[in-house]
Design a protein around this nucleic acid. Structure first.
Lengths: 193, 193
DNA sequence: CGAGAAGTTGAAGCGTGTCAAATGCAGTGG
DNA sequence: CCACTGCATTTGACACGCTTCAACTTCTCG
């Protein structure tokens, strides 16, 4: 409901991969009762508040509100699309593109839930977090962020991210928001420049 | 129903990332009618036969067979887990581990659908396919496969893969099949040695 | 004010990519 | 049946993006 969390997995030797970021409103796990055990971990990156929903109440809610079931299907589709896009990000893109792409994704998702104002949003991640999400070293993240700043694509500091020309950053990243299937209130995705 | 296919996405400059492999019995897309357009492509890697199911007949089948709906939920959970594991593979593992891990995954999945006999299975992938799945260059795939052969972890040639000691390969890859949630007929996963 | 975490910088090393070319192999047409 | 063709695989040499290591500095917060 509030705050940032992430899915992650630790390898035997201590390497950590962040698998995805969960933002306010995101669903963590619908089927805990089916699989019984998660194959990964979830952690809060900021103070966060989380709601638990019993499958009984969820089922009755879906019975009374058919569009809720539809919304949850839609949520799964988008989550899967994001995970596929991360696969592409890690598999094909350079460090520069990777970081730019991740920032684009987070920015658009935050925008979709009203957490972007004046092209600014909070980004409560350490450079180590960014490193573990992009499969890079924290040191290289640092240098990549410097390069992004040098090209005036972002301003990042004090946990605040500012993207002056979104289109430029998206082009540099090869980012296309179609996969997120996000509808923006009061304007269209193409209005992001 | 038969043959190998894959999901993939092409970047603007021609880079290709294979996002996942679809094996016989796998579901490609349940909700085409909801999202209308796919954000990626699917291609056959071998001659393949595919069945289309209308949402009408699927819904009626699920109505008559409650366990079918359960099975499809289970399928989505496993698919999501595989995609997360690919994220880890591409983000954290070395070339050697990546290839070993991918071969482990495919081997176990093929085993689950009865396509492994005497520790052998078909692997109708080119080295270029493996490269695009693991985010490596085809040349480095070639050298990595040679190293895997040199360590007697695999035999691969003529589109046939042989894994003499699965446990050894899995250890080298950091592979744990738990995320696949596969039940083996007539034996347990730990029987794979 | 002190201490630990986060961010920054420089130098050196290495894993993987790129380029170029040779070899092997399967399908095709004469 | 064989020469031809094109794709897959293999090999070697070299380049480079990113990692590692080792400081140092700057923040944050009790």
């Amino acid at each position: 409901m509030a705050g940032w969390t992430c899915r992650y997995k630790l390898l035997a030797d201590g390497r950590r991969q962040i698998i995805s970021f969960l933002l306010p409103g995101d669903v963590c796990e619908l089927y805990v009762d089916i699989i019984h055990e998660l194959d990964h971990s979830v952690a809060a990156l900021t103070p966060a508040s989380v709601a638990r929903i019993s499958s009984a109440s969820l089922n009755s809610a879906m019975g009374q509100h058919p569009r809720l079931a539809q919304a949850l299907i839609w949520e799964r589709i988008v989550t899967a699309a994001i995970q596929r896009e991360w696969t592409i990000n890690l598999g094909q893109r350079s460090a520069f593109e990777r970081v730019a792409h991740l920032l684009c994704e987070l920015f658009v998702r935050l925008r979709g839930i009203g957490l972007v104002q004046n092209r600014r949003c909070e980004l409560p991640l350490t450079q180590t977090d960014l490193a573990d999400a992009t499969g890079l070293s924290a040191i290289h993240i640092n240098r990549t962020l410097q390069e992004l700043r040098r090209q005036d694509l972002i301003t990042l500091g004090g946990k605040e991210l500012y993207i002056p020309k979104f289109k430029s950053l998206a082009d540099a990243a090869g980012f296309n928001d179609k996969y997120l299937h996000i509808k923006y209130p009061n304007d269209e995705s193409s209005n992001l420049r």
